[in-house]
Nucleic acid binder design. Structure first.
Lengths: 250, 250
DNA sequence: CTTTCCAAGCTTGTATGCAAGATTTGTCGC
DNA sequence: GCGACAAATCTTGCATACAAGCTTGGAAAG
């Protein structure tokens, strides 16, 4: 099983450790998070794990299947569209409501874009996934509205899960350029343009998804066995036998 | 203490009973929600109450003061402004992203406006508070995006708490007219105008707040003793005896 | 050999118990 | 009378225990 980085400071909470695992794409959608399993990882009792799960469920990040266990959500196609729609609404609304880009704000964004370029050059896909989501959070942070930041953070987490499910290949360079364009518009002080670009950017990413593809419950197992990844053609006539993916590990 | 309508169907959950109590302004900000207290009201153990509180905390509706108890949040002035800002961003963004008003949608909105008029005529302030918040949720529901609906529902709950804290007197008719204008614009198919009107409307409500007024920790007691409500003048030279105001620190 | 049914094991759901901290109240000293 | 201190009480924090249900593996029947 992918580790949840339990060595991470216990003070930050189990919640954030799991979210962080998702944001960095170390935890896949559908991953089972057994209460006792996580409890022993963090050296606490099930009670606290359960409380964390309740909070994460509220945030739309995990779901419970009664008496079966907790699972990282596997957003349906409908949910995926709603997440993107919500992000378009909020991010565009946010940009439209902005009035100026402070110097420190500009520096923050440029630093972020530089990091993106670095990760692209290094080909560090995991880090890239994280950065691509973070970009939008950075922008929200500029507004100083922590409420919206938190909302967007959760939506970003779900976005990452969605792309892990439905994105065949993501074009990092394309996304990066989209980000650059948005920042450029902000520097011009043209926040309406930035908002429009943001909508375009999200549309672009959403269009790149293959939402017709049903989530593959065997993805993990398939990967473990080094079988070729599921293709659209294969998914229709694949003999769905075998057990519905259980926690690998320990 | 205000009752939480425990007779409400247990299936709906403790969470929703409390939220419902807030939405209808039966539960005031700062209200203490003791775990065992609520537990006995709902005839369950503290465990389930605690889980409900964890979820509500995540939704920004209650806060825990360690080893002291759970309290319905008393948003600070900064938080209040953030809530309104977030609502402006989301609601305006939502309206701008809409493209048509369906027939059933129009009927829903008109039915709602009719209810508002009814409540105004009856002078039912409690019901009115609830309806005024619901209007914006109705609009979000038109989009079919349940994610945004849930977000707005929580923001609305917080809005009601804010107005209970900072609103000296709310002008129901003014708000109602604002709603009417928004609906009219939507009927014209002019969603940009509707979005602008929505921003104006929220601005208007926010302007009507007295954010300089510190929350009165004695409000409940004062009310129980039938003392006159706190005025800006009285608050400055009132002999602050009794307990040191509860956790509004940090 | 295949199918059906039952039991054992594991997982969550819920309650309860105990410990630690905060508040309050009563008392003592001045 | 008034302020400080200490014990009693109440509250949450956390762990554990037990109940209930799902899953699965194996045995038995066809």
């Amino acid at each position: 099983m992918q580790d949840l980085s339990p060595q991470q400071n216990d003070q930050t909470g189990i919640d954030e450790a799991i979210v962080s695992g998702i944001l960095s794409a170390r935890i896949r959608p559908g991953t089972r998070l057994g209460e006792s399993e996580v409890a022993s990882l963090f050296s606490v009792s099930r009670t606290r794990v359960r409380e964390a799960m309740m909070r994460l469920e509220q945030r739309g990040i995990v779901k419970v299947s009664p008496r079966r266990g907790w699972f990282v959500v596997e957003p349906s196609a409908e949910e995926a569209m709603m997440v993107y729609a919500a992000r378009r609404v909020i991010e565009a609304g946010l940009l439209r409501s902005m009035e100026e880009l402070t110097t420190s704000g500009r520096e923050t964004l440029h630093a972020h874009l530089a990091e993106e370029r670095l990760a692209i050059a290094a080909g560090d896909r995991q880090r890239l996934t994280c950065l691509m989501g973070d970009f939008h959070i950075r922008i929200a942070e500029l507004s100083g509205n922590t409420i919206l930041v938190e909302i967007l953070r959760d939506l970003t987490a779900r976005t990452i899960l969605i792309s892990l499910l439905y994105q065949s290949d993501f074009h990092a360079m394309q996304s990066h350029l989209g980000h650059c364009r948005i920042v450029a518009a902000m520097e011009e002080g043209d926040f309406l343009k930035a908002a429009a670009l943001s909508v375009d950017h999200l549309d672009e990413v959403e269009t790149g998804l293959d939402l017709t593809r049903r989530p593959d419950p065997l993805a993990d197992l398939r990967h473990s066995l080094s079988l070729p990844p599921q293709t659209a053609a294969a998914s229709s006539n694949a003999p769905r036998k075998a057990k519905p993916e259980i926690n690998r590990g320990e």
